[in-house]
Structures are given as C-alpha cells and as structure tokens.
Amino acid sequence: MTTLFKNTNMIKRLIIKDWELMKKGIAGYMAAGIVTIGIMGMATEITFNVGAILMITLLIVIGARSAVESIVNEKKDQTMPFILSLPISPQHYALAKLLSNLVLYIVPWLILVLGMLAVIISTPIYNGVIPLVVLVSVYILAAYCCYLATALLTYSEGFTIAVMIVTNLLINAFIIGIMRMPEINQTFKAATASWNSTSLTILAAELGFTCVILVLTAYLQQRKTNFL
C-alpha cells in the first residue's frame, strides 16, 4: 500500500494518458450528451422518451467503448509491454486502468442521470417515475462494472463483448421485471417519488453488487502473477 502512495504520480500520468488517448471519443459523447439533455429538456412526452432512450444508448456505448478501447485494445494492439516497461507494477497499472475507466465513465453517467432527474423534477412528468429511472441507471452502472471487470481480468475481447451482450440483453428483462412488481408499478404514476422497501432493496442490491464486483476485481488483480 505504501508503494501505491509513492507511485501516485505514475498512476496519475497513466490516467492522463488514457484521457489523451480517448479524448476524441469523449468529446463526441459530450456533444451527444448535451444534445440528449437538450432533447429531454424540451419536456414533451415524446422528447423525454426519445431523450431517455438516447441516454441509455449513450451510457451503454460510452461504457462499451471505453472498456474495449482502453483495456482490451491495449493488449490486442500490444501497447501493454510499452506501458509495463515504465516504472509501474502490473498491479498498479491495473489499478490505474480501473480508476481511469471508472472516472471517465462515472462523470458522464452522473451528468446524464442527474440531468434526467432534473428534467423529471422540473416538468409535469410524474415524479413517481424517479425510482424506476434510478434503478435502471444504477443497473447500467453495475453492468458497466461487470464488463469492465471482465476486460481487466481477462483482457479478452471475446469475453468482454459476451458480458456486454448478456448484461445489455438483461436490461430489458430487468425493466420489465421491476415494472411488474406491484410495489413499483403502483407508485409509477404518482405525483411524488415514493421509495418503498422493494425499490430500496433492489437499489441496495445493485449498489452492493457493483461494490463487490469492483473490490473483487481489484483483489484478483493484486493476486495475478503473470502479465503480458
């Protein structure tokens, strides 16, 4: 752990490097994000729904692209030996990857989710939809963490894409599943957001799952003995 603090400069350099490599993509997403929030902000039912679909798509695409581009491709394009020849241990390299990807994902995720919540709160859209929006957004975050973990632990394009496909297919099942739950369904069209034990339990499970995935990834990375 002490070496970690001694090496924060190097971890910072690697995060900046990832930002520089991905900034073109991120710039594109930022533009798309502004458009998405602008569309949702038009506050009609159609624009809100179109904006919400765009937002989900955007969140999935951002996650998928960052995991593939910054992790899987580093192995595939054989740039990993170059980075690992620098004064960093493979464990800290993996940590830098985990951190840079999380930061680069969570920032747009937060902006888009908060933007969406702001639209709901400040428009005639039923506030009862808020728990559903939060649960789906956190699901997308958890799914992202799943394929981020897969990418980091396997560096395999095949496995990572497989996990992406499975988690993204399950999103529909997840939405339908929670929509059918009476506790969530009944409060859906209420004027105010009502959190009950069911929605809170699902949220806690999602967050817990996400934390477990991240901690487990970090732990397994530290135990790895063979890189390249």
Binding site: I37, G38, I39, M42, A43, A118
Partner: peptide, 10 residues
C-alpha cells in the same frame, strides 16, 4: 431561460 440548455439557442 429554462434550466436546460436549449438546443435551438446553442
């Protein structure tokens, strides 16, 4: 004036 960036204005 609304709290969201207006696309037309941008």
């Amino acid at each position: 004036e609304w709290i969201f960036p207006a696309l037309w204005a941008l």
